[in-house]
Amino acid sequence: MKLLRTLFAGFSALAIATTAHAAGGSKHADAPEGGWPFAGPVGKLEMDSVQRGYQVYREVCAACHGMKLLSYRNLGEKGGPFYDYEYPNANDNPLVKEFAAMDEILDPVPNDSGDYDYRPARPSDPFRSPYPNEQAARAANGGAYPPDLSVITKARGHGADGEGASYVYRLIKGYPDPETILTREGEDGLNENYIKFDDDKTHGELVQPLGQYYNPYMPGDVTAQWDGDPRHVPYGGFLAMAPQLTDGRVEYMDGTEATVDQMAYDIAQFLQWAGDPKQSQRKSLGLPVMIYLVLLSLLLWFSYQRIWRKVGH
């Protein structure tokens, strides 16, 4: 028992140590109401949602954000949203071929005269990149670089199941209501946007710089734009991405109503899949392994009891 207690103490200390990275100025991103379907040891991605999420990615996000670690074939591989057991080789999956062919990419292989041509993508190609390089991406986005979304759900949160997806979900629908963003004439004579805060402790006005958008879930520090008590600065930061989702922004192929919440939920779940496409294999292998180890430990325990039964120790 003493051993157990000590181990427990050790683990709690470990847990504190790992969660302690959390000192940041952004609002904590909770999972959606009802939690994520993929969370927990037996959780599974909701594939309809991942499919819709891919549509949101294609039609909204892909204009600025690349996913260079993914290929079209991944969509049709086992554990992917468009996996079809009739096409074990995802390259033959007609849906995957169709998605690929809808994008024009620059052929990485030069043509016979040595030039690089655009051609429709094939399933084995990586996702189309919206910009040829980082400089072009920055030039097109007011100096900001839209991050690659391949592993974004693993790159946010603290590694627990779904924290990265919750971040995406909350951030994308977490912009303040446009009606709360007010406009006035700034000191330089130009119009400036600001947001009034009147919470428990946070009273004041936050000026939103031109081309920047306030979001409480974005890590950052807004002290410089804050007119109010510097001890109670609002959560969050500014980002260069304007709010993207409005009701009906995409028309879902499966007829689901495209509310902002639905789209945020779907894109977060798509990115959750994309960040770790083998997660369903991982969890489904986990269960038999755990059962095997527990059974083996029981067998060893009885063996141990047998062997030691005549020795005082």
């Binding site: 095997y292 059974l295 067998l299 009885f302 063996s303 062997i307």
Partner: peptide, 11 residues
């Protein structure tokens, strides 16, 4: 005892 040991080793 033998049975348990054999099962353990086999597992």
């Amino acid at each position: 005892r033998d049975f348990i040991h054999i099962a353990t080793v086999a597992a």
